[in-house]
Design a protein around this nucleic acid. Structure first.
Ligand SMILES: [Mn+2]
Ligand SMILES: [Mn+2]
Ligand SMILES: [Zn+2]
Ligand SMILES: [Zn+2]
Lengths: 140, 140
DNA sequence: AATAATATGCAACTTAGTTGCATTTAATTA
DNA sequence: TAATTAAATGCAACTAAGTTGCATATTATT
């Protein structure tokens, strides 16, 4: 599967009804190929191997992909956003694992979260976010 | 209770066995007086009303308080750390609430988290972090 | 009061992310 | 296919949280 990812990206982006641009395709293709969440930096490096993409544009592309539910972003303790493509069974609420050694982030899809916690009076519940911290297999 | 907080802070810091400095006392006193988690900025502003404290020193004080388990820090989606004093029943694992409108953070002490999730093979579990997102009473 | 280890202030730095604006490109229409 | 136009892009400048190095001040000890 050489660049099935690019074709898959094209299908997904076309499906949003908005503009199908080269940079959106390239970026999404990279995220489709990855098993874990990538930082803006990591994506930039992978992109620039073939063809340069301005970092500001990449920020805007990632924001766009995020707003259109093609990816989701995850906040880490290192103040850096990580981006992961939304797989079919993936768009629902799920937990994340963060490796405290290499800061790698993976999505825990098998991990259901039961919601509706009791909040102080007058508070409005929206969603619950669960992060598991530990050490990944490569770092043990 | 005028500055019971300063006295309480003195007791807590003396108890660590390390140096009892004016800045540690002032900073901890401010955190003791608050019901929710404060950013470095918010603490700085409160401190500077009475007497200036260098921002770098404050970073170091907060790091010290954190390492000595007198406060804990919470990562928000705005890439800013928030600090909250560790109350007696508070040091255990608990959940946090983040207001998506004003970014205020409170600790949900009544909220127990059951741990030991199933992770991929070779992964090491350390702890689980639960964040509830919604809108606080003042922002509804 | 003298000592020594630690805390502090200040300047300079790092880095993720944002903003404004002129130019280019994707999609629509003629 | 060429003209049109709204949205996407590149670039420079900016913002803001947090860090580092080093000289000076303060705490705790003798
Ligand atoms: Mn995920
Ligand atoms: Mn808390
Ligand atoms: Zn790891
Ligand atoms: Zn609020």
């Amino acid at each position: 599967m050489p660049n099935n990812f690019y074709e898959k990206a094209k299908e997904l982006i076309r499906h949003t009804g908005y503009r199908v641009t080269h940079n959106r395709l390239r970026t999404l293709a990279i995220l489709l190929a990855e098993q874990y969440a990538l930082t803006h930096r990591e994506i930039e490096e992978r992109l620039n191997v073939k063809e340069h993409l301005d970092r500001v544009t990449l920020y805007r592309v990632l924001e766009w992909l995020s707003k259109n539910n093609l990816v989701h972003k995850i906040a880490g303790d290192d103040r850096v956003w990580r981006f992961r493509v939304n797989m079919e069974l993936h768009s629902h609420q799920h937990a994340h694992f963060i490796c405290t050694r290499c800061t790698k982030v993976i999505c825990l899809n098998n991990f259901r979260i039961k919601s509706n916690p009791s909040l102080p009076l007058g508070y409005l519940f929206h969603e619950v976010e669960l992060t598991v911290k530990g050490v990944c297999a490569e770092c043990v």
